[in-house]
Design a protein around this nucleic acid. Structure first.
Lengths: 130, 130
DNA sequence: TTTCTAATGTTATATTATTACATAATGTTA
DNA sequence: TAACATTATGTAATAATATAACATTAGAAA
């Protein structure tokens, strides 16, 4: 069913909702919003979210259990993510810094372990909240 | 009650348990383990965890909802954390690289936003699982 | 067309975390 | 020390997040 860039019906509904949201959305907020479109159960939401994360269309903000659309053309797959999070207004922005991503992609620890994926969350105060 | 380095009874019990564990512990696993010591309710666990995180004695692995003791003398406060996580055996190691921490502590995004805190999680395969 | 895989629908339940309220212990200041 | 403030504790109930299990359907692949 799923081929390359095509989203299924549920995936598309849920992606569109997240993509339009100015802030990260939580799973049950998504569920509430899509119930009128026939998506009735948590599992339907979580399955779509899992797939969307897997193909890099959305990212999960782990510290907030929330999801945002990817606006970074370079991350087609969710293997290198960085976000800034305002601790007051909870605004989340995806960081795209080639310096940062190069540094982290090449980072090796003492064991020489090389990583296939990373997620970085910065916390602070955004312009408005400072 | 709480002053500087002194842990309260519940905090000490829960810290000791996490500190002895070779792997990250989840809140309800902790609860199960400390019930014989009189800690009976989830909230008692979560309150101790919150405090221990706040003072930097333990860290939360956000992607796993689990907690590990801090073994990094430099992070007395939980404001700069980095971990490597094996995606097969789920082994988690705290990374202490002064290069990495310097790089991230000084990182500024385009807006010039400076961060007070960050958390980085690397994923890959550990030596044994490769 | 047959078979395989991925997605869906549905119910129930597991896991993670917090609210609300009462009490007790310690710290602080007059 | 007495009065007050602050932090920690105890307890019950419930909210929020996420998954298991099973049946069905849609599309891809042979």
């Amino acid at each position: 069913m799923q081929k390359q860039n095509f989203l299924t019906k549920n995936q598309q509904i849920i992606f569109d909702l997240i993509d339009k949201s100015p802030e990260p959305m939580k799973a049950y907020a998504i569920l509430f919003n899509v119930q009128k479109k026939g998506i009735k159960a948590p599992l339907q939401v979580y399955r779509a979210l899992d797939k969307l994360v897997e193909i890099g269309k959305i990212h999960k903000i782990e510290s907030r259990n929330a999801f945002i659309a990817c606006h970074n053309s370079s991350c087609q797959v969710a293997k290198a993510t960085a976000f800034s999070i305002c601790e007051i207004c909870e605004k989340v922005t995806e960081i795209s810094s080639s310096g940062l991503s190069k540094y982290l992609a090449n980072f090796k620890d003492k064991d020489g372990m090389k990583y296939s994926k990373y997620n970085l969350e910065f916390f602070g105060l955004c312009k408005k909240c400072r």
